[in-house]
């Protein structure tokens, strides 16, 4: 949907699509059908590959297919209450790979398959994505190893699994990281806001937007020292048009606003502070589990009041549809035309 259906919406849709793939490297506009087909193919291929991987690593056939379906889509439904902790380490590593792919830019895989095999790794967004996942996995593995005395191999596996699961907004769990202590909680809470790459199945703010915001902040520092300098925001060596920056800006602002409003709404119906804060972040990013005893990685949303479930479901919808589309529906002039 991120790459194919959005432009089919007549009003506003096209603009959103442009924002979605605002990295101009792809220039998908004129050949949407082709690209959409390519992506469908890539998506199906990865799902099949993942299922095969799961099966080889020792999962039953049914479980393998189910998990492949929800890993590549970054969905995160499992067939076991223990989630992925039910299976062995190999299965979990396969899941890490599948989630990593699910959170990467699928458009680039089609490009990689067709023309330039290197374009995937030259892409600034992919590099940031891998750096984020790698960096935080390393940090958490170190924390688990030194502070909580987990054996190094298990620490690396669980850290990589959990971080990938959150950044790609999948929501699988290989272990209950809510027992890892405050540091893990804060890290996972912040990771909820990062999200995967644009043009992927992942939710969240997306790496591309953080990248552009980072560039904006650096430009601002430069401007503080040389007020008359000319600062051009670049992405993948292409100049980023002001309109795109504007829409990124609008998106991030609306994202945080939605997050705040829904957090407060959740507490109004009686959810506690930590659950509401992390639940709202998780729902908006389509990640799945939050932080705390109730909705942690091994918990479930069942004990929450019904009103809270409705609110969270609505928020997931808004997050999935990238805010703007839903917000447009609420504007009067949309219905008038």
């Amino acid at each position: 949907m991120a790459v194919a259906i959005l432009p089919a919406l007549r009003i506003g849709g096209m603009q959103v699509f442009r924002m979605e793939t605002s990295d101009k490297t792809e220039r998908v506009g004129p050949r949407i059908a082709q690209v959409a087909g390519g992506i469908g193919l890539v998506y199906a291929a990865f799902t099949a590959l993942t299922a095969l991987g799961f099966w080889i690593a020792g999962m039953g056939r049914f479980d393998a297919i189910c998990h492949a379906l929800s890993a590549v889509s970054t969905g995160g439904f499992s067939t076991s209450d223990l989630r992925l902790a039910h299976w062995n380490a190999d299965v979990q590593w396969v899941a890490v790979a599948a989630m990593l792919v699910g959170g990467s830019s699928l458009v680039l895989w089609t490009g990689a398959g067709r023309a330039a095999r290197t374009s995937l790794f030259k892409d600034a967004q992919t590099r940031w994505y891998l750096m984020f996942v790698g960096g935080f996995s390393g940090l958490l593995a170190l924390w688990q190893w030194t502070v909580n005395d987990m054996p190094p191999a298990a620490a690396v596996r669980h850290a990589a699994f959990s971080v990938t699961s959150i950044v790609s907004t999948t929501g699988f769990a290989s272990t209950d990281w809510s027992a890892w202590g405050g540091f893990a909680h804060v890290v996972f809470f912040i990771l909820l806001f990062i999200g995967g790459c644009t043009g992927s199945a992942a939710g969240g703010i997306k790496i591309l937007r953080w990248d552009l915001l980072f560039a904006l902040a650096s430009a601002h520092i430069g401007r503080l020292l040389y007020p008359h300098g000319v600062y051009v925001i670049r992405y993948n060596n292409d100049m980023v048009a002001p309109a795109i920056l504007d829409s990124v800006l609008g998106f991030v602002v609306l994202y945080f606003l939605t997050f705040a409003v829904f957090s407060v709404t959740l507490t109004v119906v009686g959810v506690d502070f930590v659950t509401a804060l992390s639940g709202s972040a998780a729902a908006l990013a389509n990640a799945g589990p939050g932080i705390g005893d109730v909705i942690g990685p091994m918990g479930s949303y069942r004990p929450l009041p019904d009103a809270a479930k409705w609110i969270l479901a609505l928020e997931m919808m808004i997050g999935r549809l990238e805010l703007f589309i839903v917000a447009v529906l609420f504007s009067r002039s949309y219905w008038r035309e």
């Binding site: 202590g181 405050g182 540091f183 909680h185 804060v186 890290v187 912040i190 915001l213 980072f214 904006l216 902040a217 650096s218 430009a219 601002h220 520092i221 401007r223 920056l245 504007d246 800006l249 991030v252 602002v253």
Partner: peptide
């Protein structure tokens, strides 16, 4: 607008880093 956005980003970043360091 861009400065304000840069400010918001750096504020959020400082918050995230500080919270992580404290934890």
């Amino acid at each position: 607008l861009e400065s304000v956005m840069g400010f918001l980003f750096v504020y959020a970043l400082a918050f995230a880093l500080l919270a992580m360091a404290l934890a």
